[in-house]
């Protein structure tokens, strides 16, 4: 969701943050995590793992909000999220500059 101006309480709001960890050798390339990540943090790699599958890699470092959906939907137990330090969002992240112009 994009805002058209900077919210007044932006300094007070904290966004949860997660660090995504991927065990690429256990992945079978089902793409569930890439498809269902609400923040589009992941994308499929161009490389193959040892078994010949493409595996997810982190595309947008820092965008993960620790919802754990990838961890729960992964059928191969090959991705998990560790809670990181919550942070204040930056104005650029939440404002849709295209709409303002």
């Amino acid at each position: 969701m994009a805002y058209w101006r900077v919210p007044l309480d932006i300094k007070k709001v904290e966004v949860p943050h997660g660090n995504v960890h991927i065990d690429k050798e256990q992945c079978k390339g089902c793409k569930f995590c890439v498809e269902y990540c609400p923040r589009d943090v992941l994308e499929m790699s161009a490389e193959f793992n040892r078994k010949g599958y493409h595996y997810p890699v982190v595309l947008k470092q820092g965008a993960c909000v620790n919802c754990n959906l990838c961890e729960m939907i992964c059928p191969d137990f090959s991705i998990f999220v560790m809670e990181g330090k919550p942070r204040n969002p930056e104005a650029d992240e939440i404002i849709d500059r295209k709409d303002n112009q």
């Binding site: 079978k28 089902c30 569930f32 599958y53 729960m72 939907i73 059928p75 137990f77 998990f80």
Partner: peptide, 26 residues
């Protein structure tokens, strides 16, 4: 985080790629 609940020496499991059983196990 689920490793303590799994016999990780048997992994990766035999279920096919995109099979839903692993998700239900999670």
């Amino acid at each position: 985080p689920m490793e303590g609940y799994l016999r990780e020496e048997r992994f990766p499991h035999i279920w096919c790629s995109t099979c839903g059983i692993g998700t239900v196990l999670t």
